Computed example of a mutant assay.
Amino acid sequence: MTTDAAAQQVAARRPAYLAELAQGTERFHEPRRTDCPWCGSERLRVRLRTTDLIQRKPGSFTVVRCGDCAHSFQNPRLTPEGLDFYRRDFGDGFDGREPVSPFGAGSGTKRRLAAARALAAFDEPECWLDVDTGAAHFPALAKQVLPYTSFDGLDRRAGVEKGVRCGRIEEGHRGSLTELAERLAGRYDAMSMFHSLPRSPDPRAELRAAQAVLRPGGHLLIEAPDPECRYAGLLGKWWAFYHQPRHLHLVPLANLCAELTELGFTVVAVERRAPHVPVDLSAAVALFLNCRMPGPDVPWRARPATPLQLRLRRAARTASVPLVALARTLDTLLAPLLTRTGFANTYRVIARRDAP
């Protein structure tokens, strides 16, 4: 997108954003919970308070942790309208887009191929559904490992339709897994969920939907941020996998495995090192600098950024490149050691759906 086109797009969207913000951001939150949505315990403590560090939209957010089951969740949680507001225009080419993305397909081709191989070791699926597939980059990669598997994708966004047009998937399902589970029941013998559970308002409902969509004997592959990662405590709100306000839940590995077992799955593989995404330090540095440099010209900003402010921001971003690059190098070099000592930021679970 050219600079002029981006400026025109921002100007066109600004009135609608300002009209929404004039009503305040508190209306985007549900009532604050006094109990844990996972186990019902009332032993909750604040884990962090933060703002939108990526898009810098107005608002504040709190993540709490349950003292009994260790489940972490956004509290008060965003309403559906709030989720739409804070997810809208995310990474759409404005200057405020995410500086480092640990969640996209481009962040780890080797990891995603390794995930496909890990599931293929149990069985070669006939048909595989990739949840929150985006533009279906993972299925395109996985075909290198499983050339005879038919891949479909599911996503709320229009990118899934692009995945079909580009031939990366056979079918694209537009909507959420919980909405489409009844229509897709018993259709697949493999399913992948990469970092989709944290975005779900109800992770348990997502797992029940996955159980419905899978055939008996089918395998479910889940990768999710590990809230027990030591980086989470060390970096605080600058830990990219908190991803506020777009992540609603951080499910501990033990809780996930117990829930899968309760639903009639057998957990056949757990991995905490290989799925690690080496971006913790570089993402933290990028997020910190993004919040310290002059703000971008975005439609939720009351007044357009001046030419001087934009020049200063471009200069600051250019000057920050060596520092972010250094942090990225440290991420890569330290990963083999740190993933052995509790700093792995992602876990992978493969579970087989048992026969009723």
Rank of each mutant, 00 (worst) to 15 (best):
A210Y: 10
K237W: 01
G217N: 10
H137P: 00
P216I: 01
R112F: 13
L177K: 02
D130T: 12
A210R: 09
A210H: 11
G217E: 05
G108T: 00
H173I: 05
A136C: 14
W239E: 11
A135Q: 02
E124Y: 00
E228P: 01
A140L: 12
S107M: 13
R187H: 05
L221N: 04
E182I: 06
A185H: 04
A224V: 14
Q144P: 03
R168G: 07
K110F: 00
D130S: 12
L146A: 14
V145I: 14
H219G: 06
L207F: 11
G186M: 07
P198H: 02
P147R: 04
G186H: 06
A120R: 07
A105Y: 14
D130E: 13
L177F: 10
E124S: 10
V145S: 00
G172P: 04
R168N: 12
A121L: 04
A190M: 05
E223V: 15
L119R: 07
H247R: 10
G163D: 00
R156F: 01
A120M: 00
R117M: 05
A120H: 04
E171H: 15
L235Y: 11
E179H: 07
C166N: 13
F194T: 11
G217P: 11
I222S: 03
Y242W: 15
P147M: 05
L146F: 10
R157F: 09
A105E: 08
E124K: 07
G186F: 06
D202T: 08
T133A: 14
R215T: 12
G167S: 02
L214D: 07
G217L: 06
A190Q: 03
L113D: 03
C229A: 15
A185W: 00
A105I: 13
K110E: 11
D152I: 07
L119N: 02
D152C: 10
W238Q: 13
A209P: 13
S196C: 11
A114V: 10
D189S: 09
R117Q: 14
R168S: 09
A209F: 09
P201Q: 03
Y242I: 14
F241L: 15
G218E: 04
G106A: 15
K237P: 14
R215W: 05
E161H: 08
H137E: 14
T109G: 01
G218I: 08
R165C: 02
R204S: 12
E170C: 07
K162F: 08
L113K: 05
C229Y: 09
D132S: 15
L129Q: 05
L113G: 06
E124D: 05
L146P: 12
L129I: 11
R187N: 02
E170N: 12
G218L: 08
E182V: 13
G236P: 15
A116D: 01
A210C: 14
P216M: 00
Q144S: 13
F138Y: 15
L184Q: 03
A142I: 10
F241C: 01
G153P: 04
R117N: 03
F122Q: 00
R199I: 13
Y148P: 00
A181F: 01
Y242Q: 10
E126I: 07
P147F: 00
K237M: 12
R156M: 12
S192I: 06
G175A: 06
Y231A: 14
E206M: 12
W128N: 02
A118Y: 03
K162I: 11
G163N: 02
S196P: 02
T149P: 06
E228I: 09
A140N: 08
E228W: 04
E182S: 14
A120D: 00
S192V: 07
D132R: 12
E124F: 03
H219F: 12
H243W: 11
